[in-house]
Amino acid sequence: MVGLSEGEKHFIRGGIAQDLRADGRTRLQFRALTVETGIIPQANGSARVRMGATEVIASVKAELGKPTILHPDKGKVSIYVDCSPTAAPMFEGRGSEELSAELSVALQRCLLGGKSGAGAAIDLSSLIVVEGKACWDLYIDGLVVSSDGNLLDALAAAIKVALSDTGIPKVNVSLNNETDGEPEVDISDEEFLQFDTSGVPVIITLTKVGKHYIVDATSEEESQMSSAVSVSVNSHGQICGLTKRGGAGLDPSVIFDMISVAKNVSQRFYTLLESAIAAAEAAADE
């Protein structure tokens, strides 16, 4: 919880109404974004994303598993978010449970697509090793290290970068009858396959304060919101997920307007993210 005086609240709301926020940004401007990849050697892919004072880490681990009976031709992806007590004292113990669950569900909704697999960020059939016998299970874990608002967008960006950093080990499969038709899987530790991450969307959260909406809100600004709409947009400009937060009801026309604004903003966020990734790669080469 952010404790703000009446004067501070008035200052934040007034600034947003005049398109000049407390930190000098306009309403639709993001904070400085920095990205690092490959920060967790134990994982198959990982990334750290900083947006202002918000810092999140995403890691992707791949394990061999068995596909489900209902979908024998598909692998599995699970997404889980944890909020560290280092970010805020209220996250200690069970205090983070509610927020973690909310973020996890929102990310699952935006990245995993419909039940049939349409609109999913990751093509699940690309994770299959032997149909009905073996597949890759991807465990995507997000960690909130430092929290200053806009966690969902930061987590989605971190997951997108971590997935592009992910290498799935190449496997050689040999089927023989002696082991009851169970395939023998030989995991290579030298050759890795890269993912096609072009379909992974970004999430743009528009936070409504007063009559206006802003992107990339800080936690002070979030404390003044009436409601927020998170829209996930893929690189083709298609909407693949949407969640609303905050209690106040919204007029339908406002929601449609927010969706189209989020679509426009997402294209700018894509370029911002790409330049941050390029900067990270340049720094790693030095």
Binding site: R109, C110, L112, G113, G114, A118, G119, V229, N234, Q238, I239, C240, G241, L242, T243, K244, G247, G249, L250, D251, P252, I255, F256, I259, S260, K263
Partner: peptide, 17 residues
Amino acid sequence: KEITQLTLTGEWTDGKI
């Protein structure tokens, strides 16, 4: 005439939404 909650999954185009 207010929407209190809205959730969406899968891939949708604007018109369809």
